[in-house]
């Protein structure tokens, strides 16, 4: 997963729901130094009884926001979705010669 272009990650999930697995795996995919490099991560854990779906809100460096419903997605689908935008950003960065 390309995390270079993320600035904000906002997660809400209920750890006791089997559908929130991809939310937890997403957290484990963030590299160890990401927080030190300016990525803001907020994870809110819901109580056990709540039926709220797991959601992910993401902001990219170019200001694009994404809302993903993690309940119905596998972790590979989540990374695909994010990487699609990250790759365009990476290409732009390459072309401007930074």
């Amino acid at each position: 997963m390309i995390t270079r272009f993320l600035t904000n990650v906002n997660l809400r999930f209920n750890p006791f729901s089997p559908r929130s697995k991809s939310a937890r795996l997403f957290l484990s995919l963030i590299p160890p130094g990401a927080r030190a490099n300016g990525l803001l991560i907020q994870s809110k854990m819901l109580p056990r009884a709540s039926k709220e779906p797991a959601t992910l809100e993401i902001k990219f460096k170019d200001g694009k926001q994404m809302h993903l419903d993690l309940d119905k997605m596998r972790i590979t689908e989540v990374t695909e979705e994010l990487d699609r935008h990250s790759r365009t950003l990476a290409r732009k960065e390459e072309l401007t010669g930074n």
Partner: peptide
């Protein structure tokens, strides 16, 4: 502090019963 940010309490098992964070 950097390490603690990456550590999340999920729940507990107390005498065979399962509790969430609040419990």
């Amino acid at each position: 502090q950097a390490g603690l940010q990456k550590l999340m309490l999920l729940g507990a098992r107390v005498e065979g019963k399962v509790f969430d964070q609040e419990g």
